[in-house]
Simulated assay, not measured.
Amino acid sequence: MTTRQQETSASEFVSAIETVDLATTMNVAEEVGREYRSAYYHLNRLEEDGVVESKKIGAHLLWHTE
């Protein structure tokens, strides 16, 4: 993946988190058109980079921007 593709992906994920009513991994995955595993991977990388944060609620991770 090129740097440009990574930037586009990051902005798509951030936008999806801000757009969906309940930003679970599955809802974000559906919003960006990715499989659950792919979305989970990208969201975790964004969390490691400090771009997004997650909070575990029951069996779900809820994602949010800072």
Rank of each mutant, 00 (worst) to 15 (best):
Q6R: 15
S11K: 14
A23K: 06
Y40Q: 12
T3D: 09
D49K: 15
S54F: 05
E66P: 13
A39Q: 06
T2C: 06
V32D: 03
E31W: 02
S15R: 10
G50H: 10
T2F: 06
A16F: 06
E47M: 14
G33N: 01
T65H: 03
A29N: 05
S15V: 00
T24K: 01
E66M: 01
Y41L: 13
E12T: 07
N27I: 02
M1V: 10
A59G: 03
E30P: 05
A23C: 03
A59E: 10
D21L: 09
V51F: 12
K55M: 06
V20N: 02
V14F: 05
E31H: 09
I57L: 14
I57M: 09
G50A: 13
R4E: 14
A23N: 03
I57G: 01
R34E: 11
Y36I: 00
T19H: 08
N44V: 02
E18H: 00
E47H: 11
G50T: 07
K55S: 08
V52S: 08
E31L: 03
E31M: 06
Y40A: 13
T2V: 01
M1R: 09
L46T: 06
H60V: 02
T2K: 11
T65N: 01
T24L: 00
T8K: 15
S11L: 15
G33R: 01
Q5S: 14
G50N: 09
D21P: 01
Y36W: 07
T8Y: 10
T19G: 00
L46I: 10
L46S: 12
A23H: 05
K55G: 02
Q5G: 07
D49H: 14
I17H: 03
H64D: 04
F13A: 14
E35F: 02
Q6A: 15
E18I: 04
T19F: 05
M1E: 11
A59V: 04
H64C: 05
V51N: 12
F13N: 12
S38W: 13
E31Q: 13
N44R: 13
T2N: 15
Q6D: 10
T19C: 01
A59P: 02
E31K: 13
L46H: 08
E35W: 00
R37K: 09
Y40H: 11
R45T: 08
H42P: 00
H42Y: 10
I17N: 04
K55W: 02
T19M: 08
A16Q: 08
V32I: 08
T65Q: 00
D49A: 15
G50F: 10
E7P: 01
T25M: 09
V32E: 04
V20K: 05
E47D: 11
A59M: 02
T65C: 04
L46Q: 14
E48Q: 14
M26N: 05
I57Q: 12
Q5N: 12
R34P: 04
T24M: 01
V51Y: 13
L61T: 03
W63D: 02
Q6H: 11
L62F: 10
S11D: 10
E53F: 07
E12C: 12
A23E: 02
L62E: 04
E30I: 00
Q5R: 13
R34H: 11
A39K: 09
S38Y: 11
